[in-house]
Amino acid sequence: MDVILFLIFALIAVVCAINVVVQTHPISSALSLVGVMGSLAVLYLLLGAEFIAAAQVIVYAGAIMVLFVFVIMLLNAGAEARTGRSYLIPGAPLLIIFLGVMAFLVQRIFPDTTMVRFGGFTGGGPADIGHALFTTYLLPFEVTSILILVAIIGAIVLARKEIE
C-alpha cells in the first residue's frame, strides 16, 4: 500500500516537474508546479510530517503559487518566444549523467535498512513542531520574522508608484 502510494505520487511529481520545465506557457508551468507541491504534500504525510504537509499546501500551493498565477495573469504573459540558443543538446545528457551518479550515490550511501512506513514516525504533529520552534529554534524563528519584514518593505518599495 505504501509502495503503491509512493509510486503514484512520485510519478505525478516527476511528470508535473517535467511539465514545469517543458511547457512554454508560464501558467501551465505554474499549475504543474502546484501539482508537484500537492503530490509532495502527500509524500510528506507518508513520512509522518502532518504539519509540514498542511503548511506545504497552505503556504506553497495556496499562497506563493497563487501569487505567481496572479502575477502571470496581471502581466498577461504569453507563451515564451523561442530564442535561437538551445542548451538542450549539451544539457539533456548531462542531466541524465548527473541523475545516474546521484541515484548510484544515494543507493550506496543509504542501504535499504531504513524503510518508510506510514505511521513509522509520529513526531511531526503541530505540537512537536511548535515545541521545537520555540525552544531549540527560537533564534532562527525570530530571524525569519525579521526577514519577512524586510521582504514586505522591499516589495512595497519596489512596487509603489513613483511619488514625484
Binding site: 505504501d2 509512493f6 543507493q107 518508510v116 512506513r117 513509522g120
Partner: peptide, 11 residues
C-alpha cells in the same frame, strides 16, 4: 510493504 528511504532521496 514499505518504501526504501533511498527512493525518496532519488525522487
Amino acid at each position: 510493504n514499505a518504501v526504501p528511504i533511498s527512493w525518496f532521496l532519488t525522487l
